[in-house]
Design a protein around this nucleic acid. Sequence first.
DNA 1: TTGTATGCGTTATCAA
DNA 2: TTGATAACGCATACAA
Lengths: 336, 336
Amino acid sequence: MATIQDVVKLSGVSVATVSRVIHNSPNVLPATREKVLAAIRELDYHPNRLAQQFRTQRTKCVLVLLPRLGDSFYSEILKGIEEVASAAGYHIFIANTGNNPEMAKFYYEALIQKQNDGIIDFSACLPREYMEEIAGQNPVVVACRYLSNSNVPNVTIDNLAASREMTEYMLNLGHRRIAYIGGNTELALYRSRLYGYRQALEERGIPAEETIIYTADPDIQGGYDAAMQLLRSGEKFTAIVTSGDTLAVGAIKALQERKLQVPEEIAVCGFDDIEISSLLSPTLTTIRQPRGLIGRHAMEKLLGLISGKDENLSEQIVLPYELVIRASSGKFRNNK
Amino acid sequence: MATIQDVVKLSGVSVATVSRVIHNSPNVLPATREKVLAAIRELDYHPNRLAQQFRTQRTKCVLVLLPRLGDSFYSEILKGIEEVASAAGYHIFIANTGNNPEMAKFYYEALIQKQNDGIIDFSACLPREYMEEIAGQNPVVVACRYLSNSNVPNVTIDNLAASREMTEYMLNLGHRRIAYIGGNTELALYRSRLYGYRQALEERGIPAEETIIYTADPDIQGGYDAAMQLLRSGEKFTAIVTSGDTLAVGAIKALQERKLQVPEEIAVCGFDDIEISSLLSPTLTTIRQPRGLIGRHAMEKLLGLISGKDENLSEQIVLPYELVIRASSGKFRNNK
DNA sequence: TTGTATGCGTTATCAA
DNA sequence: TTGATAACGCATACAA
């Protein structure tokens, strides 16, 4: 690999001048610039990025932390991030934490040691104190998930309100005994969604019943397993509200296997509006998160933090969601 | 941030010794080691990774290039990669090329400049010549996809044989007029699969008919659109073979919307066995790729290339696939 | 407009 | 077993 020294020798100018040419500094004579460029071409010289980064302590790269890979929910978000990032000359790298704090720590370490200029964290699996300490000194944006009572910059929808609205919609359809399948409530995100469900019920004077509230792994299998348990329990219910489309897909699968018609016998709704939700039978009633918008806002916020122009270090950006009515919630019925 | 110099001052030893302690070199007295470790703890010193990488020209990180994000097909593969990588003390970063050669080039540039130690490329969207030149001097493994007539290390299944076997299976079920919906044949991968379909037909003396062979974007929408076109064309057929589960899912959706029973009226089969394939109605007959195995083999090969111990620079690893029979292909019928 | 010289934080060579 | 010191490749303050 040719280094800047090789270019110096071949072009007969100094390192400083070569460096100026590389960075398009205006203070260099056209003739000199040409000489240097010729040498660069001839040597097929490319500046060593590792050395550049080491020297400047900036990489023009940001890291996106995902809780799991292959979740289509994130693909649209990542597109939004990429859009804003590449317009600003940034590149993004994605890493998987698997919700494992040890893994997450490794990547935060990478941030601290300037291997990248910032982190957008959809995983948020580290303790609040740790996050706040790091976010206080480094560009960090948490998105979709959040830490409760924290001032780390955050981009989300109002999960509580969305879940409440969804549950209210089901109540308005006439349902009175509504089961719930949600993700682990250790995550603030899932706590909020469960809480929205509870609020909606309480507002109607219907007590939430713990026997029809289930916690599950937030994937298809988790929804399937929870619904099967629910069915085996013998509890009566006419609808299931879930905290995720994958959970809803799994639940519907279980219901259909048990020959229960969705939505005629049991209505189901999801959360997130992932790609397959509009393609299944029945199509899924769900909450649509503005995914592209989430990605763009998160990246813009991060760029602000990186440049230091954005001094609002504890901004909580709350974006609008949308209730998407499809087939799985069914029509109004008079449930006794 | 504390540097090695701070540790030197506090512990009263030389940088060399501190460095030795950091890297668990055996040639250091226990007492000295303790002194240094105490200083490191007190200062909360962490070696600057950027400086380390710059100095050693190794990062202990590898890059995985994906053609698109949020495709659940890759999640199992990435798990396999991660397994092998972390056992060897490596971390993986994922980047999206979007099948865009410009993007891919940026990431290969990162490899050339030692920002990471190797690349596993599932995107393979760069010209063969470019790839061969880079792979000749850097650790590169192409997986799932491949470049035709290339000697870049590669991990795949035998796509041609798999597609042929799938088509043969449909022929054995009695189908004679089998439509095909496949990905863009500019990719060697999709060329192989289409070729397998053709071979199976020819072996039975059935000429492949171009009027029922469609090319589509390899996602649900693409499958849906192609199937709709196929239906509108008025061509007769009793089965559809596809080059991907997402295509099959889209095709089934289209058929069902047109009130055609799958598999009773039209049989459909996919390729890849993605997560939802076993959860849809009907469940999908498909080709299962050994995803975990692909990931592990690719990473092991890459580690071999990185360490220089693996001198087999043009190895083509072909792993076994499996024909998974589910509902969408239906039973034997006597198609005239 | 150009060049000189210094340092970024670490590893590694060599001598002690 | 330990230490002094020279790189690694580049950017930049300062001098010319």
